[in-house]
Write a protein that binds this DNA or RNA. Structure first.
Lengths: 229, 229
DNA sequence: ACAAAAGTGTTTTACATACACCCATGG
DNA sequence: CCATGGGTGTATGTAAAACACTTTTGT
């Protein structure tokens, strides 16, 4: 096969995290190199002997030290001049992680990694802003018909966390009673015996997402779906 | 930028058509070359100076002579051995066309192109079967929340065509009265004064999809959505 | 007159929405 | 006892689902 093609393949990850009731994105900064000082999505070139997914996982680990619980291909960006240095197409992914589970290795020699509030993203390299926009759209759409929000929370969480998560991501108020009623009706949340005590207010009962139950229900044709006008 | 990467980038299209009340897919057959006799999705390598989308459009035109009204990126397939000859990643697209608008140029020297019933797909090259599966999933999901079905029909069509299209793609019976009521409630269908007379039965009034009206409504927050258990 | 497809309304059921007060704890 | 956040039920509105007969044409 003699094809003369000079296109490089990269992967980039839009990593979402949730903490302090805010939706965040994980960005890195090359401390040295051609794009110094510009923040960018974690990512890099795919190796000849690894799949796209392996490449994202590897790059994420190398650059930030995190491992995503949830990883999903987002979109492939192929504009001709998205990288001025060469023709590079970027296969992008979205990842969900719980920031509390990792301390970013911001101390390595080459790279700084930080969480940024989704509403306070700095100027980014390449077309990474577009990738984030697309990623956010996907996230907003997806939490309505797949129970992926749990990936952003602690494994045991109070109902209010889940509620705030949805309100934050969708940027809208949701009635507490209706939300709770709906979620509980799915029977994929498991009540624990534990409580969380913040300091003021009544302690909140903690729940767990029952993934096994969810998969069972899914098999039987159940379809997770939330609709809040 | 010195990256030693030996990965080629290709595009492939899952082209859906609808005729004789059947959902079809457009496949090509290399008459000569390494994959002779195996049917495959139309597609090919991306040129250095064209975008991914331009590449699909070009390949589609070269190999089959069709031009898609609707084209949407589907997924990027990056398994390591999906093509035994080299490492090739495939950015796949789905396209919708009305087969009646094109006669396939099955007469060219190198390639045969044919419509295949979705339920009667031959053995395919590479992982093209997987790509079709993914494409079909996307199509099934998407006709429920975007008015793309019209792209598969004549610009003026009887209600029964639309109804059959949905029933065929979703593989389920839909109540005629409820379907009609729902679609009409959106006010994106324009009644024409024409009728279609098949030969037996009462002639059917023809409708047009009012794209302009749809875009207006969309702007005002309207969201096309069909739900049939 | 009959076969074939188009066209048409009403009733029932389920789910989404709207809405406000009491409870348990810490300070 | 007050501030803070957690927990709960009901009534109303709206859209989905179920369901069968009449109309228009060709033969």
């Amino acid at each position: 096969m003699k094809i003369h093609q000079n296109i490089k393949v990269a992967v980039d990850a839009v990593v979402f995290g949730y903490s302090d009731n805010k939706l965040k994105i994980l960005l890195i900064q090359q401390k040295f190199g051609s794009t110094t000082n510009k923040w960018a999505l974690p990512g890099g070139f795919v190796k000849d002997a690894e799949t796209l997914e392996q490449a994202v996982i590897r790059e994420l680990n190398e650059e930030t030290g995190v491992k995503a619980n949830y990883l999903e291909q987002l979109y492939t960006f192929g504009a001709i001049n998205r990288d001025e240095r060469a023709r590079v197409i970027a296969v992008s992914y979205i990842a969900l992680i719980n920031p509390k589970n990792y301390s970013l290795k911001a101390d390595t020699d080459a790279i700084d990694a930080k969480w940024f509030d989704i509403n306070d993203i700095p100027k980014l390299a390449f077309d990474h802003k577009d990738i984030i926009t697309k990623g956010l759209e996907r996230l907003k759409a997806k939490i309505n018909y797949q129970p992926i929000g749990f990936e952003l929370l602690n494994s045991k969480f109070p109902f209010s966390d889940l509620e705030n998560l949805y309100q934050t991501i969708l940027s809208k108020k949701i009635d507490r009673r209706n939300f709770r009623k709906k979620l509980l009706s799915f029977e994929i949340l498991q009540e624990t015996t534990e409580f969380q005590n913040i300091g003021s207010g009544r302690p909140a009962k903690l729940y767990k997402f029952n993934n096994k139950k969810y998969r069972e229900l899914e098999q039987n044709g159940f379809h997770f779906e939330i609709k809040f006008a």
